[in-house]
Amino acid sequence: MFVEEKTGLIEEIDKLVAKYGNTRSSLLPILHEIQKKYRYISDFAQQEIAKRLKIHPVEVYSVISFYSFLNSEPKGRNLVRICKSIVCDMKGKDAIVKALERELGIKIGETTPDKKITLEYLNCMGLCDHAPAMAINDRVYTDLTPEKAVELVNNIK
């Protein structure tokens, strides 16, 4: 990581600690915002957060590893997640996944070589009345067809 990036990250963490407080209860909100901005929580970020909350970095890592929305490894700049739970499965999620895999040239779980998009599954998003559903970053899309899903993904900047 470059020095400027580190300074930027430290400033960001200080801002978040000021916003949420330096207690353990602030850990998830802080991790959430770092995750959202950087798309992952680096070892360096984990150490800096741990220092400020006065806990061991392993504690931070342990929490990150528990929650499926938090990751310690870099991913693509955009996260495309398709629901694989029962109703979306019945309503054609396989066809959507196939179309996206073909279009992006990657398999589910992978990231495009230009690091633009990571394709993943997620569990029921509470949109089963409009299945199949998927999320692109923190927006959700419903009643999908393979064509519609491909169009949405191709529109990602």
Binding site: S85, I86, G126, L127
Partner: peptide, 11 residues
Amino acid sequence: DEGEPGTFKDR
């Protein structure tokens, strides 16, 4: 937290 697959009333 409404996470049970097939549940969306709380939404």
